[in-house]
Design a protein around this nucleic acid. Sequence first.
DNA 1: GTCACACTTTAACTTTCTTTAACAGTAAGA
DNA 2: TCTTACTGTTAAAGAAAGTTAAAGTGTGAC
Lengths: 228, 228
Amino acid sequence: MNNISILLAEDDNNLGLLLRNYLTAKNYETALFINGNLAFEAFPTGSFDLCILDIMMPEMDGIKLAREIRLLNPDIPIIFLTAKNQKEDIIDGFKSGADDYITKPFSMEELLYRIEAILRRTTSPAVNRKSESYSIGGYSFDTLKQMLAFNDQTIKLTTKESELLELLCRHGNEILERNFALKTIWIDDNYFNARSMDVYITRLRKYLKKDPSVKILNVHGRGYKLIS
Amino acid sequence: MNNISILLAEDDNNLGLLLRNYLTAKNYETALFINGNLAFEAFPTGSFDLCILDIMMPEMDGIKLAREIRLLNPDIPIIFLTAKNQKEDIIDGFKSGADDYITKPFSMEELLYRIEAILRRTTSPAVNRKSESYSIGGYSFDTLKQMLAFNDQTIKLTTKESELLELLCRHGNEILERNFALKTIWIDDNYFNARSMDVYITRLRKYLKKDPSVKILNVHGRGYKLIS
DNA sequence: GTCACACTTTAACTTTCTTTAACAGTAAGA
DNA sequence: TCTTACTGTTAAAGAAAGTTAAAGTGTGAC
């Protein structure tokens, strides 16, 4: 166990069990509740570090649940699960204080990335801040500081630049799927976000061109490959 | 070999052999079994790192097999192969502890991506795909960078060009079957994809004509042979 | 509050990649 | 020889991605 405890509220039992098993396998202590009421009753007793709430649930929906939880603990990170194209849900979700949300269907890997990202943002620096750093050819990239260094020159990346470069690094020398990247970073993989991503790819390529052995290759119709 | 050993259970012999050949070529040690019983009997003897199980199989189906395997080894990654739109299968699959599933038809590259993704999640740090390079007469071809070099001139190949040339190289001086190439790269071996492949063969021949000893020969009705 | 600034998205235009089409040439069997 | 399926080549059409600039958006300083 890594001492992280997750409250999971999901009424679809198949998905719920799948998620619980997966998160448990990933060393997150996970408590599953099949509706909002049960989750809310359990919340004060367990000392949870993170909540994953389905929005559409009978009895008490995820948004209402989030508001109640926030009254008890204003700082706890909350990730919403929602079906696609429920824009209103998403807006309501953010109003009720979501830190993040993820649209169904999603891959386990995607959810895991979100959890890690959110824990990185919210847990205190002293605790488990493992500063990941990648070396990309002659560059070195610190994901936490969001700094990209080449020899003595260092530039600060923006959040999106850094997140995209991190995903590329994680999938180093293999394909990073467009949709995966879009859903993990932009949440929604619509046309405009896809074009936005193109702009960021261009920018990253510009940053990385000092070392000619480093390349971000496009795989037509699928995604990108960072090679070094 | 990269020391990764895969158990593959698939009753369709065509697909089974195609998969085994491809995975073997990609340096995964692969054992193929044509039904669930045989696979299960063999499981304890071979020390496998990953299972790829067809769901629909006679005798013991993939889901039952997965459960049995999980009893022996709760952590081994399992990928299911399933026909499209078999939602129930997928859900059952996840209940029995699948890590991922892939719906037929799929490309080899897609499966490879899933395998790498799952290994990335379960083994750490990342298994970086090494850059393979082939020499073809006076040319040198880097599969990862997708670059084809002749003397001081280097051209960048597109993804499809590179995939096709890689298959040709891998079958160097022997025959690359049309259907194998089509299924591996284009997924579907229909008429239009076949014609598309012809176009790519023409293009590769153009790239390779600087060295007259290099030839892509057609074997009528069967496929192509790269000689150098 | 509003101004300035950094960050992100949208827009417009260009280039590249893949597939489809059209037509020509070639091998093999009836 | 003649027919038919297979292959070769080139051009075109359509979709995806590259690039640059402008327009939004939010955030902190004052």
